[in-house]
């Protein structure tokens, strides 16, 4: 579903059409979940953040401006909620998402992702790289869309993606060699 179509559903939902929410949810949950997961790297926290994002979105739907980028709006809500959560827990986490340097970002304490391939991504890629890889490979967004949603330059997104894929390939090769 492209952004214009999503916008139509947002407008419908804003007008009170509850069925539109289900469509919006189904269209965006993968992207949002991978997005928040890449920030907090903790399954349960990500789940909470996903839930809170939709709750906040529903509560604030009146403030949605028709014609604007609904995905970017949702991602901003998700990012702010997750960062606030990080703040609340007083964990030291870089929040410089646009300029990189996230290598040292720490994970939340608690249960990690606990899924072999997702763990490979979370353990070996920076949050920014993990975010782009998940949004692209898992959620199927195009690089240009990711750049739009995450407010990063396209070149940076592409660069990060290629870097990440390079890293993953090396890891896969190593695993295969074992």
């Amino acid at each position: 579903m492209d952004r214009h179509e999503l916008d139509k559903y947002m407008i419908r939902f804003r007008a009170g059409d509850e069925s539109a929410f289900e469509v919006i949810y189904n269209e965006t949950q993968r992207g949002l979940f991978s997005f928040v997961l890449s920030i907090c790297k903790n399954y349960h926290t990500a789940e909470d953040m996903l839930q809170n994002t939709y709750i906040k979105m529903r509560a604030g739907i009146a403030g949605y401006e028709p014609g604007s980028n609904a995905l970017a709006w949702l991602f901003t809500i998700a990012k702010n909620l997750t960062l606030n959560e990080l703040q609340k827990r007083k964990k030291e986490v870089y929040t410089d998402f646009d300029l990189g340097s996230l290598e040292n970002e720490k994970k939340f304490e608690g249960e990690p992702v606990s899924s072999p391939l997702l763990d490979i991504i979370m353990d070996n890629l920076s949050p920014s790289e993990a975010q782009i890889v998940l949004l692209h490979l898992v959620s199927g967004y195009k690089h240009r869309e990711i750049a739009d949603m995450t407010k990063k330059p396209l070149g940076t997104v592409l660069w990060s993606y290629r870097n990440a894929v390079g890293k993953l390939k090396k890891i896969i090769e190593k695993e295969d060699a074992r």
Partner: peptide, 18 residues
């Protein structure tokens, strides 16, 4: 495999949100 793993782990919060 990653896609399928992700799908399996994707939480369904729809009802909770509603």
């Amino acid at each position: 495999n990653l896609k399928s793993e992700f799908e399996n782990r994707l939480p369904d919060v729809f009802e909770r949100v509603k």
